[in-house]
Design a protein around this nucleic acid. Structure first.
Lengths: 349, 349
DNA sequence: AGCGTGAGCGCAACCGATTGCGCTCGTCCC
DNA sequence: GGGACGAGCGCAATCGGTTGCGCTCACGCT
């Protein structure tokens, strides 16, 4: 792949490099005649300006970094991220900002900024620790363009994109209460993740508001397996809860699988409510709190692009809503065992 | 984010730019004393060499492009790609080659090569057309490093990574035949995609070898919906096949969903066999042809990295095998309707 | 003292594109 | 016919790092 340069074009046309450059950028101070010759030749030989040289003079890479949380396995196994990435990728393509993928847990992305390899960062939250967030804030405070999606934190220099979890969660609790539920179990993300603590708190307050008692509270690492294991524990301990509330659909799916393994079915044995409403939720009939995941991704990418272009931008607020499906119903099944109290209430630290 | 340059370091130390550069690269012709001073200062101010400038002199970007087939939706919705990406991303991280994501259906990747934005391309097959492949071959013939994964084509300048589909498919057909199946249906990917034609041909020859008659052959676009629709058609037409063979798990899942909708169950009504063995397959008990997807991704990335470093590399051959699970069994169910022949055999063009 | 030697560093060109400035024409006007 | 003017283009510096080459010393040797 012999790369053709501006100088090559200039040489074969017998003009200066600068003339070719100006002609290609449609500079009016170049005659239409030469511009035509230049354009034709450039097209003929398939000339494209060297990205590195361009980046050097323009002082911008024209690339944004996408920071994935945790391992690649964690991200790609979770359908929530799949939809999020879909939204992000589609906008990235339409605004012409290629995405550099940071599959690392290590702060590679910080180096990328310092190397000017990327102009900004789009960070996917939902498992960042306090320290990660502080690091990002430091970068943003230093003038870097950083957007954070799905991480409910105090407003700072970061562009934070979230949707309001409260309406959907409130609706879910209201519905459960109306259906006759009184005791529930909460299974949320890791206690060290701010996002998980926030969501957990929202579930708690909504439950309390609607008179649902949280018999037990479990935290997992947001994976399918964590949901499955939590369900096994609950089944094994004969918990009296008539509904299980989850921090995300992925864990809820794990729980449904555990129920299936045990020969039980939701909502007959227990109602199951997720959070996210990933596409598969509709397929398996999971009752869940709908979150416009794709929009979350597109809005985040658009916000970042706007910041890079120094354009102001008013984001449309995103909001959640409860979507009742098969896995939530009245707790009327006879297959439930009532407990005589004494269940341990594991509240997170 | 004030970027600190080599010149800045040189100025504060009172030495030449070149000295700083050499010191940082541990050039022996720089005294240990100055090297120490340089290193210390560089670390103190958090210096990182500008990626664009480096790329310009080194004549390589240190980045590889990842070309996703079709739309972002198509890719991220399919668990096969999730696992593939997982493998690719993990190796990319370990060999220090950032990934530039081409979410585009348009040949952006070609521009990236010409702009020297990437040093090589990793292309995910499984839905490329003839013309796409020819374009890639042209790029490779022009000296570009191009790897193609999951696309069984004739050997060329491309590094092609596939695993041998035949053993697993043969085992599947053998098992079905042993279980007493005689008539099957084949549902594979789009007829215009070489990979799909190849896989279809392998299924056909294996079926023939084991005395399985292919009553009907349907092509879909490899999506969940395509599988669901194919199943609906089959259910509606009361096809006599006792087993449905799929080109991938994703479509098989769609079919299982259609069966569920119809109040039917596999293998009671019909045996279902997929291809890929994505993680979810084990969960739902889908009988399928196992393909080491993650290894496919890691091997492809490693092969590309080796090519970029001009290192020879011998890939380990990857192979498939049949994994019987719940959805395949003997065709003994009474709920099946025998057909009186006359079913149309839709063979692809 | 004179010379050679080599360690240690600076000068400057280069990668490829962009851009301010100045040069060279042709044209028009008085 | 000579000067002013502007269209059209070239020169050269610049972005930040890399690298061949040459320069400047201190030192050791005869």
């Amino acid at each position: 792949m012999r790369k053709v340069t501006l100088q090559d074009l200039a040489d074969t046309l017998g003009v200066a490099r600068s003339t070719v450059s100006r002609a290609l950028r449609a500079d009016p101070q170049i005659s239409v005649a030469t511009r035509g010759r230049v354009d034709r030749l450039a097209r003929a030989v398939g000339y494209h300006p060297n990205a590195a040289a361009r980046a050097l003079t323009h002082r911008e890479a024209g690339v944004v970094g996408l920071v994935l949380p945790r391992s690649a396995h964690f991200v790609f196994a979770n359908p929530y991220f799949a939809e999020l990435l879909e939204g992000i990728a589609s906008v990235a393509e339409s605004v012409g900002l290629p995405i550099l993928l940071s599959a690392s847990t290590t702060p590679d992305y910080e180096r990328w900024l310092r190397e000017a390899r990327v102009d900004g960062l789009l960070t996917l939250g939902s498992s960042l620790g306090e320290s990660d967030i502080q690091r990002l804030e430091a970068l943003a405070a230093g003038g870097a363009a950083v957007a954070l999606v799905g991480e409910p934190i105090r407003p700072t220099d970061l562009r934070v994109l979230v949707c309001d979890e409260r309406p959907g969660i409130d609706q879910a609790c209201e519905r459960l209460a109306n259906d006759g539920h009184e005791c529930v179990t909460l299974v949320t993300g890791p206690a060290h993740a701010p996002y998980a603590r926030s969501r957990s708190a929202v579930w708690r307050s909504a439950a309390e508001r609607h008179g649902l008692q949280i018999l037990r509270s479990i935290t997992g690492d947001d994976t399918f397996d964590a949901g499955r294991d939590a369900a096994r524990v609950l089944l094994g301990s004969r918990c009296a809860a008539t509904a299980w509330l989850f921090g995300n659909d992925h864990m809820a799916f794990g729980a449904l699988h555990a129920l299936d393994e045990a020969g039980l079915r939701s909502p007959d044995h227990v109602s199951v409510v997720g959070f996210d409403d990933v596409m598969a939720a509709a397929l398996v009939g999971l009752s869940t709190v709908h979150q416009p995941i794709r929009e979350l991704g597109t809005e985040a990418m658009r916000a970042l692009a706007a910041e890079l272009r120094q354009q102001p931008r008013s984001g449309t607020p995103l909001v959640t809503r409860f979507v009742p499906r098969r896995t939530s119903a009245s707790p009327l099944s006879a297959s439930r065992h009532s407990s005589e109290g004494g269940h341990i209430d594991i509240s997170e630290p």
